[in-house]
Design a protein around this nucleic acid. Structure first.
Length: 649
RNA sequence: GCCGCUGUAGCUCAGUGGUAGAGCACUUCCUUGGUAAGGAAGAGGUCGGGGGUUCAAUUCCCCCCAUCGGCUCCA
């Protein structure tokens, strides 16, 4: 008999060799029907795999991330089976589960596959799924595994096998398909009830562009058709929120081939939004002791030789600008830190001066490969909400705490309620690639972990993800429809202070090297605005939105009154405009609804006579909120704006 | 940069081996209206660019360019 410990602490006894699925059946038949896989002593196993010794056990269902992963991994195998049935001779690369679904990289040989072919594959997958084929785990020797794939002629699997140790190789087999796979898998294909293949893309074998390009097919599956339908609705919603589409519809920004790809042009409404965001952060930063600085858009080659960026990125970057007479070389600045280091060096610093915090909304230019450009999220010219903190090693933790406060303030102000932090530390083993002393690294890593814990952040620690110059903390937010974005970042840097020979005089009258911290709560204005647009679907918070009210005269006769209302509102710092086109109110309401202006004020005979406005709120059908005096309306708006900003302090 | 899809009016999109169409937007006129589209007329396109096949190419072929979906990269 073996002892099985369940998550609630209960211990049950079973025959040796009992599987998780059988244990589930002993608890409840309904539970057993939903078990996809199981966590045995912290490791995810097939639910059908016999357990031979005492173990802790957690049954995994569709409600567990690991359960979903198992399902999608099995779905990749199912897709492979379907592809093999439809396109004999197809070869397979890798087919892992991903955050939303799975993919499989395949070599179709003579065949080609277009999106039009996907429904056919989906149909085949469902057909195979209904056979409820069991996923059989089989341990094989390396020799047999190689023989199998040699016979099959699948060089990719053979390539993978080279890296695997004999004795640890397993095959999974379902229906007519056998794959080299570590597993685990769901009990049988019958769990897969709904299938959608989403898109096709090229992907190099092992991500190496010198190797052959395979066809990557992305898909997702669900245990219920309804869940697939909901997922598809979510995708539709994401499409509607696409910042590139909304950016055009709301006249926020545009691109021009003549100006150059990846170089956004901010239209008046977008510029207003962006400027408001900047002012908001600037104000918070000044309050937090930051010192705004301004630096030019180009820097001498020498600056980047000193910083080390020239060596690392020089050839891949934009080419230098040369002065006509002297032939001096300048680069468009790809980051602000070297300039800020020189500001630090502009005079001797004392330990009493630290920390020093230089902040700049600095526009930088980076060469991004053409295929990588994407709306505002991936551009060649963008403005960072940058700042560099120079401090003593013993101040790192406190500075981190302060930056975390600032970042969370920003998130709350903009309605990002759902966020996590990723702490990136050194690789646990390989430490050769990191610059800086062991002592400083340990101190900084510890400081970050403590600061995050003190601020109650939900964190994940990733080893080996630190930059060569220091550990970092990145913020990931979840937007209104559940997508994750990486926004703010805080990074420790030991490299630049060294390279620029930054110093301060300590209380011991000796020279010391300051620690530098890069940080950007937004990341970049461009990326942040893009995420914000998609998060709020273009309906910006009242304090931020480019236009707060649209005044709609019922007929031309009331245009004068409408303009006088606007003047009065402007005096109360409210932003708006009069829609004085010769159109019917219904038309004006529709157009302004689509522009997502938060408030519409309808004015006509009655309002003119009583010096009032009829208020309509955006997004509420039949949204007439009744009449109100102009000053009451102004007070209403200002109260809403101030309360919102005051409540998040 | 690589692979694949796409490229027709400002936007969304039809369509054809015989040099083009709709809706919205725009302009003008009529209409002066009460909570999500009033009516009429007009203007607007070297059908992404270049080359080829053809009597004739927006349509077929090739090469570029750009978009989109991925890959790779990301100070």
């Amino acid at each position: 008999m073996i002892k099985i410990t369940l998550p609630d602490g209960a211990v049950r006894e079973y025959e040796k060799g009992t599987s998780a699925l059988q244990i589930a059946q002993s608890i409840s038949e309904g539970l057993a029907r939903n078990v996809l896989s199981a966590k045995v002593n912290g490791e995810v196993w097939d639910a059908t795999r016999p357990i031979n010794s005492d173990a802790s056990l957690q049954l995994l269902t569709w409600n567990d991330a690991d359960g979903k992963e198992t399902m999608w991994h099995s779905s990749a195998h199912l897709m492979a089976e379907a592809l093999e049935a439809l396109y004999p001779g197809v070869k397979f690369g890798i087919g892992p589960p991903i955050e939303n679904g799975f993919y499989y990289d395949v070599d179709l040989g003579e065949h080609t596959l277009s999106p039009d072919d996907l429904p056919k594959v989906e149909k085949k997958m469902l057909e195979l799924a209904q056979q409820k084929n069991v996923y059989n785990r089989k341990e094989v020797s390396k020799k047999d595994a190689i023989a199998y794939f040699q016979e099959k002629g699948d060089e990719y699997k053979l390539d993978l096998l080279e890296d695997l140790a004999d004795g640890s190789i397993t095959f999974y087999e379902q229906g007519k398909f056998t794959d080299l796979c570590r597993g685990p898998h769901i009990p049988n294909t019958g769990f897969i009830k709904a299938v959608k293949l989403l898109n096709i893309a090229g992907a190099y074998w092992r991500g190496d562009e010198t190797k052959k390009q395979l066809t990557r097919i992305y898909g997702i599956t669900f245990p219920k058709q309804k869940e697939l339908d909901e997922y598809l609705v979510m995708l539709e919603e994401a499409k509607k929120r696409d910042h590139r589409k909304l950016g055009r519809e709301l006249d926020l920004f545009t691109f021009s081939d003549k100006v150059g790809m990846g170089l956004p042009l901010w239209l008046p409404a977008g510029a207003a939004l962006r400027e408001r965001l900047q002012n908001f952060l600037q104000k918070a930063q000044v309050k937090a002791g930051y010192l705004p600085v301004v630096t030019p858009h180009i820097g001498n080659k020498q600056l980047y030789i000193t910083s080390g960026h020239y060596e690392k990125y020089g050839k891949d970057s934009f080419q230098p600008i040369r002065t006509p007479q002297e032939g001096e070389e300048f680069f468009l600045k790809p980051m602000n830190c070297p300039h800020h280091c020189e500001i630090y060096k502009s005079r001797p610093r004392s330990y009493k001066d630290l920390p020093i915090r230089f902040a700049e909304f600095g526009t930088v230019y980076r060469y991004e490969q053409s295929g990588e450009l994407h709306g505002l999220t991936r551009v060649r010219g963008f403005t960072q909400d940058d700042a560099h903190l120079f401090c003593r090693p013993d101040q790192v933790k406190e500075e981190f705490c302060k930056v975390i406060d600032l970042v969370l303030y920003v998130f709350r102000a903009l309605g990002f309620e759902n966020y996590t932090a990723q702490i990136s530390l050194r690789d646990k083993v390989d430490r050769a690639k990191y610059i800086g002393t062991e002592e400083n690294w340990n101190k900084a890593e510890q400081s970050i972990i403590e600061a995050a814990a003190e601020k109650g952040l939900k964190t994940v620690i990733e080893y080996g993800e630190a930059a060569f110059y220091g550990p970092k903390l990145d913020f990931m937010v979840k937007d209104a429809i559940g997508r994750k974005w990486q926004l703010g970042t805080i990074q420790v840097d030991y490299n630049l202070p060294e390279r620029f020979e930054l110093e301060y005089t300590g209380s011991d009258n000796q020279k010391h090297r300051p620690v530098m911290i890069h940080r950007a709560p937004f990341g970049s204005m461009e990326r942040f605005v893009a995420v914000l647009i998609e998060h709020c679907a273009g309906k910006f918070p009242l304090w931020l939105t480019p236009e707060q009210v649209a005044i709609l005269p019922v007929s031309d006769r009331f245009n004068d009154y409408a303009h006088s209302v606007l003047e009065e509102l402007k005096n109360s710092d409210i932003r708006g405009y009069v829609d004085d086109r010769s159109e019917k109110v219904g038309k004006k309401i529709r157009d302004n609804e689509l522009k997502k202006v938060p408030f519409m004020l309808i004015v006509g005979e009655e309002e003119n006579a009583s010096r009032t406005v009829s208020v309509r709120k955006q997004g509420e059908t039949g949204g007439d909120q009744g009449k109100m005096s102009i000053s009451d309306f102004a007070a209403l708006i200002n109260r809403e704006v101030n309360e919102r900003l005051a409540s998040i302090k």
